[in-house]
Design a protein around this nucleic acid. Structure first.
Lengths: 191, 191
DNA sequence: CTATCGCTAGAACGATCACTCTAGTCGGGA
DNA sequence: TCCCGACTAGAGTGATCGTTCTAGCGATAG
């Protein structure tokens, strides 16, 4: 059993992913984490905002690991891109269209209201982009090209999640995966 | 001066776009709309949820008009795609990274909690996709191809908005526009 | 043994939430 | 002239929000 502090961060991340930042209450977090309410403010004196920031960064670290995990198992980066979108689609369906990006909802909610949380999201996106860029770079793409490709991939993925959750359909993930794979193909063919 | 009812819907749409559904209070809506609080429940007996649904649909109708407006002015659909993303980038910067998609934040927030609002979002996305597909169809793409392309474009746009707002950078819109334009190029070259 | 400290535990606070209710204003048709 | 429905107006409801507070538990060090 993870520590109380860890359970609180995990619960925060889970709740905020599914219902966003505003709709998630601190009492609800304590309940899901099976943590005494007092511990919440003991570990996180910064309150809900600190809780949000740590949840964002923790989710970011967790999902960052998926990038090499998927790409290293694929025959080539283009296949890796397709696998990544396909895997996202599977996971989305299995969670009944609840588990998409862990931070996108919060990112949109707070971008114009909390600079602290906005920066936490920006930091995580940055890390994901770097991780993706590394993979394309390793496949022979020029650094700038690799980064643009990773950024385009993340954009397509995030947007496809939005449409997929609203329409309860994985088609957006598939077509977004296709145009990203095509872009990767084109960028890597030049090598 | 628009009617009280119209002002209420407009204010709801504006507030929910910037800060989301949960963070928007009904009192805040009445205040921004300069409407008496009682009128709010007179016109919208369904309360906040009805208000949200109408705001989503109204925003959807407004933004739907942008699609032909941009594409019909462009020399060809591929240029239209680029113009669309570039225009989105300009508008985003001008609003200090506040005005991106009017319904994406709400869509992510409510997809797993309010079926009414989820369906309103799905309906609007559907209309946008149809409007986009029509343009690609008119340029010679097969119906299924045109629809996939429009769906991929919307996905790329929505995701780019997420990253752009969090990082306060328009680069995501530019690279997402590029891979979408390339996909459109490829799909229409076959004609 | 006792003092200390990290942590548990939850009651209580004021603010704010969505919403309801009643009273009053106003204009147009009978 | 009277009346009735549409709309205005805001006080008041109970519930829930994030946060603070005090009290106490249990292990460890002196």
């Amino acid at each position: 059993m993870p520590s109380t502090r860890e359970r609180i961060v995990e619960a925060s991340a889970e709740l905020m992913r599914r219902q966003g930042y505003s709709a998630t209450g601190v009492k609800q977090i304590a309940e899901m984490a099976r943590a005494p309410f007092g511990s919440l403010y003991h570990f996180f004196p910064g309150g809900k905002e600190q809780l949000g920031a740590e949840a964002i960064r923790a989710s970011g670290t967790l999902y960052e690991l998926l990038i090499p995990a998927v790409f290293d198992q694929a025959a080539d980066p283009v296949t890796g891109v397709r696998d990544f979108f396909a895997g996202a689609a599977t996971h989305l369906v299995e969670s009944d269209y609840a588990d998409a990006c862990p931070i996108a909802t919060v990112a949109l909610e707070v971008s114009s209201s909390s600079e602290t949380l906005r920066l936490a999201c920006a930091e995580v996106f940055e890390r994901w982009i770097n991780a993706g860029a590394e993979r394309f770079s390793a496949a022979g793409a020029a650094p700038a090209t690799a980064r643009d490709l990773a950024l385009a991939m993340l954009s397509a993925l995030e947007g496809a999640f939005v449409i997929a959750r609203a329409t309860r359909d994985t088609k957006p993930l598939l077509v977004a995966g296709e145009i990203t794979a095509a872009a990767a193909q084109a960028a890597l063919r030049a090598v």
